[in-house]
């Protein structure tokens, strides 16, 4: 009994600093969001009071909230498959002995280490109407690139392009690591059996990459809720909330309108979505993923 008790005390002492920080900055704020979502925002001398589900009722009637949700859905649907697909293509290419492999790999990976806020400035210029880079290129062919960032229909796709550009090279790394970990004898055996390259990719490489795909999908999913830095520079949620994503809306409500109770309510929705994503990915996909 005694050594076990000592081990427990030692174990928790080692964990204590990290656990304390996590408790204060991860566990507590999650619980506090839930608590504050049932209270009003304190104003001046008026303290917060319990209001039941009033904030949630306000949210259901809030068109901007629904706009942000729909935008976020499109944003996820647009960025996740494309960035993961491109990442896989990049990894396969870079893994093969193509011409200029090192330079190509560097080009793919560089966006990962650049600050999003900084590259958003450059992309912003690309999209600028009249004299932006896309406009100049289109001008050569006598066309007009149009005002993407000022258009209700094209602003979100523009934001999505930048996101894909930023993420794909990052996800490529994980695929590349997995590809390089595959045994070369797999390819030798498949070639002996006369499998075509496509068959080898589809029936052998792809299934063996499934755990990586799962990992990348989880990351892409989280990023779909998190990557909003470029919105601050490129559109500020506009035009007409066309690029307002959920986290950006939380920022606006919490730190522009200072309606902290409503921001806490929106945070609860975000946390619920993240929990759902975790549940789906780990619970359902994990079971269908093939491990060696």
């Amino acid at each position: 009994m005694r050594p076990r008790a000592t081990a427990t005390i030692h174990g928790w002492l080692l964990l204590a600093p990290a656990m304390a920080c996590l408790a204060v900055f991860t566990h507590w704020p999650a619980v506090a969001s839930f608590w504050h979502s049932f209270h009003s925002t304190p104003k001046g001398k008026r303290p917060a009071r319990f209001v039941g589900v009033e904030n949630y009722q306000q949210m259901i009637g809030d068109p901007i909230f629904w706009k942000a949700m729909v935008n976020n859905l499109w944003f996820a649907l647009g960025t996740i498959p494309l960035s993961v697909g491109l990442a896989l293509a990049m990894a396969v290419w870079v893994n093969d002995r193509i011409v200029g492999r090192t330079a190509v790999r560097m080009a793919y990976f560089t966006p990962t280490i650049l600050p999003m806020i900084a590259v958003a400035n450059i992309w912003m210029f690309f999209f600028t109407p009249q004299y932006g880079l896309f406009e100049q290129i289109a001008g050569v062919f006598g066309l007009s690139a149009g005002n993407w960032l000022g258009s209700r229909d094209l602003a979100l796709p523009a934001i999505m392009i930048v996101t894909i550009w930023k993420e794909a090279g990052f996800f490529m790394i994980f695929y590349l690591a997995a590809l390089q970990a595959l045994s070369p004898s797999l390819a030798e055996a498949a070639a002996l059996e006369g499998a075509s390259r496509w068959t080898f990719f589809r029936r052998i490489q792809l299934p063996l990459l499934a755990p990586t795909t799962l990992f990348v999908l989880i990351n892409a999913m989280i990023n779909a809720f998190r990557m909003i830095d470029h919105i601050f520079v490129m559109t500020r949620g506009g035009p007409d909330n066309a690029t307002t994503l959920l986290l950006y809306y939380i920022y606006q409500v919490g730190f522009s309108f200072w309606d902290t109770a409503y921001a806490a309510t929106l945070t609860c929705v975000l946390l619920a979505l993240l929990a759902l994503a975790a549940f789906v990915q780990y619970g359902w996909l994990e079971r269908r993923t093939h491990y060696q």
């Binding site: 081990a7 174990g11 656990m19 996590l22 991860t26 998190r226 946390l271």
Partner: peptide, 30 residues
């Protein structure tokens, strides 16, 4: 270091992989 409650502790830590600090800006600011 096997000890009582280790798996629970690990699970509590892994929560942060999903609930990243970015999602908790409002309460962390508070």
């Amino acid at each position: 270091r096997p000890f009582f409650g280790r798996d629970v502790a690990f699970a509590l830590i892994l929560v942060q992989l999903m609930v990243m600090p970015d999602a908790l800006i409002v309460e962390n600011y508070r």
